[in-house]
Amino acid sequence: MPLLNQEQIKEIIPHRDPFLLIDEIEEMEPGVRVVAKKYLKEDEFWFAGHFPGHPVQPGVLTIEMLAQAGAVCILSMPEYKGKIALFGGIDKARFRGEVKPGDTLRLEVEMLKLRKSFGTGKATAYVGDQRVANTEIMFAIGE
């Protein structure tokens, strides 16, 4: 049973279909860490063109999924309710495996630094026990 389902996630972050890219929150300590999941269906819009006959999730979408999980973690804090989290930067991104239709992506984000209007998080994506991507994400809190 998830801690937050997609409808509850929509109460925290402004993303909507087709760009709400996380399905549930499994664990969360607001402002500290979060674990989210994305269940990749064969009919996700990006698989048709990336790549026909060999569908693979674009790495940038994995980074976006990690960022959305991090946004839920930050925007769940009372002082950030109703605000938005914007990308400030992406550092040290590494892709270590393919993400394919049918995979369940586990998205883990740990906040390294949080100031009044910006912060940094360490983000890692897994399929099963295999790490498929990791990066540091910087974000700004906007109105």
Score class of each variant (00 low, 15 high):
98 E>K: 02
114 L>K: 07
77 M>G: 09
66 L>S: 06
9 I>L: 06
135 T>N: 07
61 L>F: 12
92 K>W: 09
32 V>W: 06
105 L>M: 02
130 Q>D: 14
47 F>L: 03
109 V>I: 05
114 L>Y: 12
97 G>D: 08
113 K>G: 11
116 K>R: 15
138 M>S: 15
64 E>M: 02
80 Y>C: 07
78 P>L: 00
128 G>L: 04
22 I>K: 04
15 H>E: 09
71 A>G: 15
115 R>S: 15
42 E>Y: 13
29 E>M: 03
50 H>Q: 04
66 L>Y: 11
27 E>F: 05
36 A>T: 03
38 K>E: 13
36 A>W: 11
53 G>N: 08
116 K>M: 13
126 Y>I: 00
70 G>C: 09
42 E>T: 05
34 V>T: 03
23 D>V: 00
73 C>Q: 07
111 M>V: 15
30 P>I: 00
60 V>L: 07
140 A>V: 09
37 K>T: 05
101 P>N: 01
30 P>Q: 00
28 M>G: 09
46 W>V: 02
53 G>E: 14
141 I>M: 10
85 A>R: 05
84 I>L: 14
61 L>A: 04
114 L>S: 07
99 V>Y: 06
27 E>K: 02
132 V>Y: 08
92 K>S: 12
121 G>D: 11
34 V>N: 06
83 K>C: 13
3 L>G: 07
25 I>F: 11
42 E>P: 14
87 F>C: 10
110 E>S: 05
94 R>A: 08
39 Y>D: 14
47 F>Y: 15
9 I>K: 04
116 K>L: 14
121 G>M: 12
26 E>S: 05
139 F>I: 01
58 P>Q: 01
62 T>S: 08
112 L>T: 06
126 Y>R: 00
15 H>F: 12
48 A>N: 14
66 L>K: 02
23 D>K: 00
73 C>N: 12
89 G>K: 03
21 L>R: 02
82 G>R: 05
138 M>F: 15
12 I>E: 10
11 E>F: 03
121 G>A: 11
2 P>F: 04
71 A>C: 09
80 Y>S: 06
113 K>C: 12
65 M>A: 15
46 W>L: 05
139 F>S: 05
55 P>L: 00
32 V>P: 08
36 A>R: 02
104 T>K: 01
92 K>E: 14
131 R>W: 08
97 G>W: 07
33 R>H: 13
94 R>F: 09
43 D>A: 01
139 F>K: 02
70 G>W: 07
42 E>F: 13
